[in-house]
């Protein structure tokens, strides 16, 4: 066991996957000698060589399609996007090919690819570097969207994503890439996909979040505990396919739900979860479902970023409003 940051856990999982399976490749921009702009692939080029760690030309649509071709041939390419805001050219390949290759060939050709990207705000980055595009990906049939919230989750979920026979979009919350360390055993144990994690049990209210909003919600839960409120925390982890059971069970117990995400509210993942509660959990609700989110605006540059991003006070306010209903 060693205490790793989230980005170190990603690197450790990549190395483990490449060690155990020679068909695992890492490709993208600057993933070779440079080790990636966040150093997620640092040392892999030296260890596995240029035929396993491939620097591609600067072209996101290309390397996504390249991964589709490699995947159909039995490789397991792990593609790194430099930033969330540069993923949009990949949507065509993801929607029109990756997500449907298995279905449209009735299983003849598979697509075991992983698209990794640092995502989300909070690091005072330039324009197009702080986006939360998870809803775009979670809307695509045939594609999993997975977001880890800690080093251990990053390690276990990334291994699972690489071993999965279908395409996975793996969004790494860059704000907590190096925010804290956690003990991670590099023993090749994967965490389950398609499962939410109950991070904290409670009776009065359910917080539902993922990625960098998890540490924030943990803080909120601790603060609420000081006020005598017992908050439960669900880490969604796999946004699609959504583990509806864990969310419904939790809200059945607490009767209140506050969903927290950075992405804009309209048609966002919070709306999906709220719809789930309205259709399948309505009669256990004691209060309206609340969403704490960004806004329907282009992600602002750093001067206004703190207004856009949900903060502790916003989460607490939403929880207190939900708790008014008895």
């Amino acid at each position: 066991m060693s205490a790793l940051t989230l980005v170190e856990a990603v690197r450790t999982a990549l190395a483990r996957a490449m060690e155990e399976d020679p068909t695992v490749l890492v490709l993208g921009e600057d993933v070779g000698k440079d080790g990636g702009v966040f150093r997620a692939t640092e040392g892999l080029f030296e260890r596995f060589g240029p035929e396993r760690v491939l620097d591609t030309p600067l072209s996101e649509a290309l390397f996504t399609g390249l991964a589709v071709g490699l995947g159909a041939q039995g490789f397991r390419p792990v593609v790194e996007f430099q930033f969330d805001g540069f993923m949009y050219p990949a949507l065509d390949q993801l929607v029109n090919h990756a997500g449907r290759l298995r279905a449209r060939t009735r299983g003849r050709l598979g697509c075991p690819i992983v698209l990794r990207a640092p995502y989300g705000g909070g690091i005072r980055a330039p324009e197009h570097h702080s986006e939360s595009p998870e809803a775009f990906f979670a809307h695509v049939p045939g594609v999993r969207t997975v977001i880890p919230s800690s080093p251990a989750k990053a390690y276990g979920l990334l291994l699972a994503a690489i071993r999965d026979p279908d395409p996975v979009v793996f969004l790494e919350p860059k704000r907590i890439y190096r925010a804290f360390r956690e003990e991670v055993a590099d023993d090749g144990t994967a965490l389950p996909l398609d499962r939410a994690f109950l991070l904290r049990e409670g009776r009065d209210l359910t917080l539902v979040a993922w990625g960098a909003m998890i540490p924030l919600c943990l803080k909120a839960a601790e603060r609420l505990a000081e006020e005598g409120v017992s908050a439960e925390l669900v880490d969604v982890a796999t946004l699609k396919p959504l583990d509806t059971g864990t969310i419904l069970d939790s809200v059945a117990k607490t009767g209140r739900c506050v969903i927290v995400h950075e992405a804009p509210p309209s048609y966002g993942p919070g709306a999906e979860i709220a719809a789930l509660l309205a259709s399948e959990g309505l009669f256990s609700l004691l209060a309206p479902v609340a969403r704490v989110t960004g806004f329907d605006v282009p992600t602002p540059l750093p001067k206004l970023e703190d207004v856009f991003l949900p903060a502790l006070a916003d989460v607490l306010a939403a929880c207190r409003a939900a708790l008014v209903h008895r």
Binding site: L54, G65, L70
Partner: peptide, 8 residues
């Protein structure tokens, strides 16, 4: 791009 992937 798929052809490039297959060729790779």
């Amino acid at each position: 791009p798929h052809a490039a992937g297959v060729a790779t």
